[in-house]
Structures are given as C-alpha cells and as structure tokens.
C-alpha cells in the first residue's frame, strides 16, 4: 500500500498504534484523539504517549470516566466534520457506550440518508492473557459484528496495527478497533509459562515510517498449508501457528484482520482447497463470531468439506481470574481440534 520500499522502524504494537495516530494527527487537522488518561499521561497502555505534547490540548486530551460520553461526544464531533479517534480503556468498559455505538454511531448515516455521518474510530484493548479477571479480559467482537453500520477490525501485529488504524481513521464509517492487549509487547504463542518474545524479534515488528494503509476487509494468509484451514484473529493467530507446528499438521492459517467487512473470498478459497476448517477465538463459544464463520463456511464450502467445521473458543463462562489458562483456548486445545478434523472420515 505504499509506493517505494519504505524506511522501517522496529516497533511493538503500542508504538505502532501511537505512530498511526501521530501520522494522522499530522496529516489531517480534523483528527482529534481523546479518552480516559489519554492526554497528558498518554494512556494506561501508553498508546497515545507524547501526542498531547506534540499536538496540544485542543487535539489530544483527557476525558471523564464516561464511555457513553466519550463516544456520544465523538459522534457530535463527527457530525460537525471532525474525525475523532477515541480510546475506551478496556473493551470491557464499552458497555455504557453500547447505545451510542450501536443505535447512534452505526445508524447516523442510514437514518439521515448521509446528511450526518460518524467517521470515528473507537479503539479498545481486548482479550485476556494478562490476569485481568472478568472486567479486563473480555472479547466483545461479536457484539459489534452483529450491528449493521459498524466495521470491526482486530490486528495481530505492529505492521497491521498501524496500517489498519490509519485506514480506520480515514474510513468514513464508524470503526471498532480492537487491540489484543496480550500482543501489545510481543507475539504470544499461548504458552504463558514461557518468556515473552518481543516484537523486535518478529518480522511483523518491522513497521514502515510515515503513512501507509492495510485495507479493511482483507484477510492475510499468514501460513500456507494444504490439510486444514484455521480461521483466527488477534491473539489466536499465534496460538494457531504454535498448534500447527506442535501437531505437525499442515495447516493454512488465515488472520482475518477485519471481521466486518469479512474477506469471505479468501476464506472460501482456502477451505475449498483444504476441505477442513477450524475456527479459533478467545471470546465465549455460544453466538460468538465463530458461529457466523462456521455458518458461512458450510454455506459456501459444504461439498468440499471432509470434516465438520470445528470451533475452539473460550468456555461459556465469565472470564475467570485464577483459572485464566484453563479458560484460554491455548495451543493444546487448538491442536486437539486440528487432530480431530484430520481424523474425521
């Protein structure tokens, strides 16, 4: 998405997200960035560090602890002509804003026939793996994909995070930008007892400087294979890679990157090739996004399937604290699913 071979810098996901906002604040006067602890301090995860000092308090500022207020005011700003990029401190905290997100931001364009739009990005750290307990670990993506008018994006690495966030800020529709917090500092393979590998040791930690985009609605085949297709996003991309390596199964792994719009073509092409599909997500199983993926895969690939479509997901319980690693769908559980689809028929 850029012309010449760009200069690159080693970044973790936090730096990449900050850099995307830096690029857009510099490029477009209508971009504003705010949220709880976002201004002077630079965010609890440091994703906006230094931006207020660089762009001033009129462009980057702190907001009250009020998700409904953050999103509601951003909708008003969007209607005025700004492009707010706001932070909800944890995805778990977005529920007070759910009315504003789903009934307002998502529908402004529709109900006004395009007179008013909400070109905003709502960033929120998502997922578990950090001993955050019930209210700092949830993955609410399907609560957004179920709503018409929203786009839902979830990157799995610094390169995609920056490119997708720039594309999201430039998008004229509201985008929910989910940041897998377990991936902020390094690609996590699901083995929580092993030391953290930093992004500086991963090729996707090589991030171009300046402006580039990763288009919304385009999946990425991160590992080619012929036996089974794994559909994953966010933290689960690396867990899936680990499971494939550990089981020795020749899995093709698709990082969805955008859940809506969904790159169904890439998915269908892969599943028709492999004949098997395992879907992995951290969110609870029932009515999770995996259910949607499973339905679409069987609708489009039924006659190519050699095994039932399997889902590996968080159990249908609240996200527990001490039992975190029993809840988390790690490489062992993904590996079991891979083996079971390979054994079918």
């Amino acid at each position: 998405m850029f012309d010449d071979k760009p200069e690159t810098t080693r970044m973790n996901m936090i730096q990449a997200i900050r850099d995307a906002q830096d690029v857009m604040l510099g490029k477009d006067d209508n971009v504003v960035v705010y949220g709880q602890d976002v201004g002077y301090f630079g965010g609890v995860f440091r994703c906006t560090e230094g931006l207020q000092a660089k762009y001033g308090t009129q462009r980057v500022f702190d907001a009250p602890i009020s998700e409904s207020g953050i999103v509601g005011s951003a909708i008003g700003m969007g209607a005025y002509g700004l492009r707010p990029c706001v932070e909800v401190q944890f995805a778990d905290y977005m529920f007070p804003a759910y009315d504003q997100i789903t009934q307002e931001a998502a529908r402004l364009r529709y109900r006004s026939n395009g007179q008013f739009t909400a070109p905003l990005v709502i960033r929120m750290p998502t997922g578990g793996g950090i001993f955050g307990g019930q209210t700092h670990s949830q993955s609410p993506e399907s609560l957004f994909t179920h709503v018409s008018g929203l786009k839902t994006v979830i990157p799995s690495n610094p390169y995609d995070a920056k490119g997708l966030l720039i594309a999201s800020i430039e998008d004229d529709d509201p985008v929910i930008f989910l940041e897998p917090k377990r991936l902020y500092n390094g690609p996590f393979d699901g083995h929580h007892d092993k030391p953290v590998v930093p992004w500086s040791k991963h090729p996707k930690g090589e991030v171009p400087t300046g402006h580039y985009t990763v288009p919304l609605g385009k999946a990425d085949i991160v590992r080619e294979g012929k036996d089974v297709t794994i559909l994953a996003y966010g933290t689960m991309v690396f867990v899936a890679e680990t499971a494939a390596t550990e089981t020795g199964i020749d899995a093709e792994i698709i990082d969805l990157r955008s859940l809506l719009p969904l790159d169904i073509e890439t998915i269908v092409e892969s599943v028709r090739k492999t004949g098997r599909c395992v879907i992995v997500h951290e969110a609870t199983l029932t009515s999770g996004f995996g259910a949607e993926l499973s339905a679409q895969v069987q609708e489009e690939c039924f006659y190519h399937l050699e095994a039932p479509v399997m889902r590996v997901a968080g159990w249908d319980t609240p996200y527990p604290h001490a039992q975190e690693w029993h809840y988390f769908p790690g490489p062992a559980r993904v590996g079991e699913a891979l083996k079971s689809v390979m054994e079918a028929i």
């Binding site: 409904s68 509601g72 005011s73 909708i75 008003g76 700003m77 209607a79 005025y80 504003q100 307002e104």
Partner: peptide
C-alpha cells in the same frame, strides 16, 4: 451528549 460533542468541535 452529541450536542455537547458538536459544540466541543
């Protein structure tokens, strides 16, 4: 709250 946001803009 949207009106307040518009006025902030």
């Amino acid at each position: 709250i949207q009106a307040v946001g518009w006025a902030m803009a």
